[in-house]
Every structure is written in structure tokens, then in C-alpha cells.
């Protein structure tokens, strides 16, 4: 009898305590972890439609960022001028925004321009881009600049994997991923 009474009292006390604890634990506004909520904001970028997009290294040097380059509507820039502009590095506003390039300062002479060629697009393999300088020693950011610039701008309406054929070797095809 006494044992049962004690046990039932203990149960009641435990229930009451649990209730109080629940009540207290639920109070206030608690901090949370990071919760994803919907898609990103799509902004209008003037001149980005059908323009070539060059990729330069961002100010803090951890990624490549897109810079649209347009000389007129509905005009596809040829591979040689595209490579030339890319190799020239950021100028004007891009330079003012602190963008840099990781590619070597190479001027593409007309003699070299025969090497600059973009192979025909194949949906499964992508494209191969030939450049007139060695590519084995290029940094990751430099390779990304090439892959992203040609992958996004060389073929209309598609983003393609890019293999880079330098004077020394051919880098295997990769996709453009601006972030490291």
C-alpha cells in the first residue's frame, strides 16, 4: 500500500515536473541553424543576353566572377578575339571593381591564331579549345577562367564541358564551376 502510494506520488511528481520543463523549454525565440528558403534572386544584368561572358578572378581571389562583354546584340564573338580579350585581363570598370586575372600575359599574335580553335560541339564530350601557350603550369583559377569563358560563351544556348589543348599538353574536359 505504502509502496504503491509512494510510486504513484513519484509518477505524479515526475509528470508535473515534465510538464513544467516542457513549458519552460518552449519559451522565447530560439536561435536556429541555417535554413534554406526558396530560390535565389534573378537580377537583370544589362547586356548579358547573348553576350560573351568573361571570367576574372574576384577581388578576394577565391573564385572567378562573370563579366559580360557585348559589342552588339545577337553577335557571337569568335574564339580568337574572345581569348585575346580574356588574356588582356580586366580593364575599365572590371579593373576598378578589383578583378584580376590568373592567366599569363600572353599576346596572341596572328601566327598563333591558327592554334586558337574551338572544336565542334559534341553533346557528350563538349568542346576542345586550343590555346597558344603551355597549360600544364596554369593555376586552378586560370584553368577555370578558360573553362568558364569558353564553356559559357563559345556555343550558343548551352554550357558545355571544356577540354584545353595547350602547346604542351591537353587538360581533360571539365565543367564550369566558378566556385572553388
Amino acid at each position: 500500500m505504502t509502496g504503491r502510494t509512494t510510486r504513484s506520488r513519484a509518477t505524479a511528481a515526475a509528470a508535473a515536473l515534465t510538464g513544467c520543463a516542457l513549458l519552460l523549454a518552449g519559451c522565447g525565440i530560439k536561435r536556429t541553424g541555417v535554413i534554406e528558403s526558396g530560390h535565389a534572386a534573378t537580377v537583370k544584368v544589362p547586356g548579358s543576353k547573348n553576350a560573351a561572358t568573361l571570367y576574372f578572378v574576384s577581388k578576394d581571389g577565391d573564385r572567378v566572377v562573370p563579366v559580360p562583354f557585348s559589342i552588339g546584340t545577337d553577335y557571337m564573338l569568335a574564339p580568337v578575339p574572345l581569348l585575346r580579350i580574356l588574356l588582356d585581363g580586366p580593364t575599365g570598370p572590371a579593373s576598378a571593381a578589383g578583378l584580376t586575372t590568373a592567366l599569363p600575359k600572353v599576346s596572341v599574335s596572328d601566327a598563333d591564331s591558327e592554334r586558337v580553335a574551338v572544336s565542334k560541339y559534341q553533346p557528350d564530350k563538349g568542346i576542345t579549345v586550343g590555346v597558344p601557350f603551355p597549360v600544364a603550369g596554369l593555376s586552378d583559377l586560370a584553368r577555370k577562367q578558360l573553362v568558364c569563358t569558353f564553356g559559357v560563351s563559345a556555343v550558343r544556348d548551352t554550357v558545355t564541358p571544356v577540354a584545353i589543348q595547350g602547346t604542351d599538353t591537353t587538360l581533360p574536359a571539365t565543367d564550369c564551376n566558378p566556385r572553388r
Binding site: 544584368v45 548579358s48 553576350a51 561572358t53 562573370p66 559580360p68 560563351s153 544556348d157 566556385r179
Partner: peptide
């Protein structure tokens, strides 16, 4: 932003 039919991070 949308470019070439694809969304592209502006950074």
C-alpha cells in the same frame, strides 16, 4: 542572372 538560357551566379 540568366545568360545563354542558364542561370549564372553574379557573385
Amino acid at each position: 542572372f540568366e545568360h545563354n538560357g542558364y542561370t549564372e551566379a553574379t557573385g
